[in-house]
Amino acid sequence: MSRKTLLRAGPLWQGGVSPYGLIEDPGAGGLALPAGFGGRVVARSGRKVAGLTWHAAPDGGACFPDGTGWIYVSNSALPLVGGASALRFRADGSIGDAYRILSGTELNRAGGATPWHTWLSCELGHRGRVFECDPYGTRAARPRLAMGRFKHEAAACDPDRQVVYLTEGERDGCFYRFRPGDWGDLTEGALEVLCASGGWEPVPSPAALLKGTRHQVRGARRFDGGDACHYTGGVCFFTTRGDGVLWAYDARTSALERVCDGVLAITSAPSGDLYVATREARVDVITPERAVAPFLRLDRPSGAELTGLAFAPGGGRLYFSARRGRTGGETFEVAGPFRGAWAR
């Protein structure tokens, strides 16, 4: 992963020149892309894919290496029957298998991948939990209760400081970090909350039996509905759903920057570019030089929310889902000459 970040002097250059040129007219499925790129739907809610009925309301996602192929994991944001499923891709991009990796949970909105190749699926419900899941489908998912009981949205691992950042889906939610006792084992550890002073304070009762975690530390900083979360190059980027802000927390200096507005989801590419899903069903690219330009647009279905952005190992394929209504959704793959990619 590139060590470049966006934390440089000066504002973002909105309307910058895209490294891929202009978006062309939409093709099949309403997906508009730059020249040289192609897209396809790899799964649709309620329809069979490799023998599995793909889940409704697809949300957060991530990719994992799998021999010469790879795996894409996707959460389901349904109440009561949420969970997560996986698609296993062969080296040529064909789908070899599809299977569930988490069941019996609800409102699994976002999450995050770990450096040891597990998937953290987060429940948004009251006193929600974080489940550590095996994307390869061989081990049962396990709740990681030490990471707190609150409306979890997303998780992002910081291997440099050996912590996991967590967002909270409340209008007065907080931004947390979890310090495991042993990096690579999330069974035990300390939950801390970011304070208005810029420092971190321990949450006295992560289980939140009597008082919500966000109300336990007097000086905790508030955010308007924490949402997506992604760590790269010493910076944890996260979004807030209420106001659509993209934030950047520099873990090296403890500086917090408001980067831009209108962003819902985020990931990064090997080039150091950020890819952000906007409220207009568009994915923009933000270069390390702070230029912002459209990369793709989804014209159909109207009103879709783009979620689950993730690059396959090698950086040559981008996955995301378009969630529409309460249950519908499609999961897309975009392939092409991404900057910094070493595999297609």
Rank of each mutant, 00 (worst) to 15 (best):
P202E: 07
D185E: 09
S197Q: 06
L191T: 04
E188Y: 07
A207Q: 14
V203F: 09
T187V: 07
W200H: 08
W200Q: 02
P202K: 14
W183N: 03
W183M: 00
V193L: 06
A196C: 11
E188G: 03
G198T: 06
R179Q: 14
D185I: 02
A196I: 07
P180R: 10
P180T: 04
E201P: 01
P180G: 03
C195Y: 04
V203W: 06
C195G: 08
D185L: 02
C195F: 03
S197Y: 00
E192Q: 13
G189Y: 03
T187A: 13
G199I: 01
A196P: 03
G184H: 03
D185H: 10
G199C: 06
G198N: 13
D182W: 04
T187R: 13
A190S: 12
A207R: 14
S205K: 14
L186K: 00
L186R: 01
P180V: 05
L209R: 15
G199R: 06
G198E: 09
D182C: 10
D182S: 12
A207H: 12
G189M: 06
E192Y: 07
V193I: 14
L186V: 01
W200L: 05
D182G: 01
E188T: 14
L186E: 09
V193D: 05
G184W: 05
D182T: 12
G198S: 09
C195T: 15
G198F: 01
L209H: 15
D185A: 03
L194Y: 06
E188L: 13
E188P: 00
A196E: 15
P204T: 10
V203H: 08
D182A: 13
